[in-house]
């Protein structure tokens, strides 16, 4: 009986001892940041158009498909042909990130491939107001993000072969 217990104990200890010499599997977070995969569903951004125009035409499909109704859009007509080739644009576009489920439905629904989710995941802020992402913020986010942080190829094509029937 005692022998059996001791062997069982030694077996367990040998496993833990083995781990002592194996490679570390932890990361020191704030210093070493983990890079998520390309498909990661992080903070939203507006993809810039090819000629600097705004892609969003304020159709409201993202707001309709959102399970938590956290997108608010108000459309308006524009005279600026260069910036808004389709005339209609979003005068107000805001996302309440506190309510967002990060399901990615808005990205899947967008027929203009204007809105997308980036690979950024650190979204801690000091006040609740900062969690409301306005259009300016989303556009800035889109310009700021480099290829690496949105996931290379995805930024170019703006889709992940979603809903692919």
């Amino acid at each position: 009986m005692i022998v059996r217990h001791i062997t069982a104990l030694l077996k367990g200890l040998s496993i833990t001892l083995k781990e002592f010499f194996s490679r570390k599997s932890t990361q020191q977070y704030p210093e070493e940041k983990r890079q998520p995969y390309a498909a990661y569903r992080g903070i939203h951004y507006f993809r810039p158009g090819e000629n600097g125009e705004e892609r969003c035409v304020a159709c409201g499909l993202c707001a309709a498909v959102c399970p938590n109704h956290c997108i608010f859009i108000e459309a308006a007509e524009s005279e600026d042909e260069l910036k808004h080739p389709e005339r209609q644009y979003a005068e107000i576009y805001s996302i309440m990130l506190e309510r967002c489920l990060f399901c990615g439905y808005c990205e899947e629904a967008c027929p203009k491939q204007a809105i997308a989710l980036s690979r950024r995941y650190d979204m801690a802020v000091n006040t609740r107001n900062q969690m409301i992402y306005t259009k300016d913020k989303l556009l800035a986010e889109g310009l700021e993000l480099d290829e690496e942080s949105v996931g290379g190829e995805i930024k170019k094509t703006g889709r992940r072969s979603l809903w692919g029937a």
Binding site: A39, Y40, L101, F102, C103, R160
Partner: peptide, 14 residues
């Protein structure tokens, strides 16, 4: 990691 690679989320997969 496998889940994140496939659907973009680790826990709330959808």
């Amino acid at each position: 990691d496998i889940f994140e690679n496939y659907c973009g989320a680790r826990l709330t997969t959808s």
